[in-house]
Design a protein around this nucleic acid. Structure first.
Lengths: 132, 132
DNA sequence: CTAACGTACAACCAAATGGTTGTAGATGAG
DNA sequence: CTCATCTACAACCATTTGGTTGTACGTTAG
């Protein structure tokens, strides 16, 4: 997740993604379009690749870059969930599922003495992840 | 945009967002939940704030943090567009995003001789932006 | 075979991140 | 008033990023 959003947090990288929407492009082809060195573009592509947003496929001596729709879909969905939660949709659903009449309210009391909630790794996602 | 995605590209920050879904929380309350200093959490909140994802509102001596659903909506929508373009659903949009007058077909030819396309700032967004 | 192209990768650098501690200003409780 | 909280912000540090150049390797064109 971190890697996914990080990859998207750069104008050049988003532009590369958009460029590859219409079809595979070799890295050098891509590099021609930006005011930076080939190596720099190469690195950007590597970031996108580690994030699972694109895949490279060798064709002759060229390396074609192609986007992976599903990866973007995953990111979009994550935001979707967040947004839903916000709007309370999930809240009602959760209450239904747990038939908890009323409780978890952060209302005001809840003397935080007990469990400060030790930080939760991250979402319940189980997609992948390791390395960096 | 950069700031938006960058803000989302951190586990702690996403967790803060999730925590504030159920209600406003003071910064110190938030800080209690993480294995880091108050100042660190303060910085994370600042990042979220600059990205427009949360707003702070003073209440007495506490600073309540509240999420802004619309900001997440904007990010989600950006990804939505990307995904759509991918799937070819919105061919016209892809053309808009890349402002390539025509012949956008990835066909195979297109002897790249013409215009290397000098890099386009970023999407057509006009939200705000500068600095880093 | 040789030359040119496309790629990969290491080394290096300035700037930004994510974290720390310390100090200082407001505000509310006693 | 005085003290304890909550917050803001500066200074500092280690690591990462985004960029550069240079070198080496595989593949295709002549």
């Amino acid at each position: 997740m971190d890697r996914l959003f990080h990859a998207l947090a750069d104008t050049t990288r988003r532009d590369i993604l958009r460029r590859c929407v219409r079809g595979e492009l070799s890295v050098s082809r891509l590099a021609e379009a930006y005011p930076m060195s080939f190596a720099a573009v190469q690195k950007h592509v590597a970031v996108l690749e580690r994030a699972g947003l694109v895949t490279k496929q060798r064709s002759g001596r060229e390396q074609l870059v192609r986007t992976d729709p599903d990866a973007v879909g995953r990111a979009r969905q994550a935001l979707d969930e967040l947004e839903s939660a916000w709007r309370g949709r999930v809240d009602r659903m959760a209450r239904l599922l747990a038939d908890e009449p009323r409780s978890d309210e952060p209302g005001s009391d809840e003397p935080r003495t007990s469990t400060p909630r030790a930080f939760d790794p991250d979402e319940k996602n189980t997609t992948e992840g390791s390395e960096r």
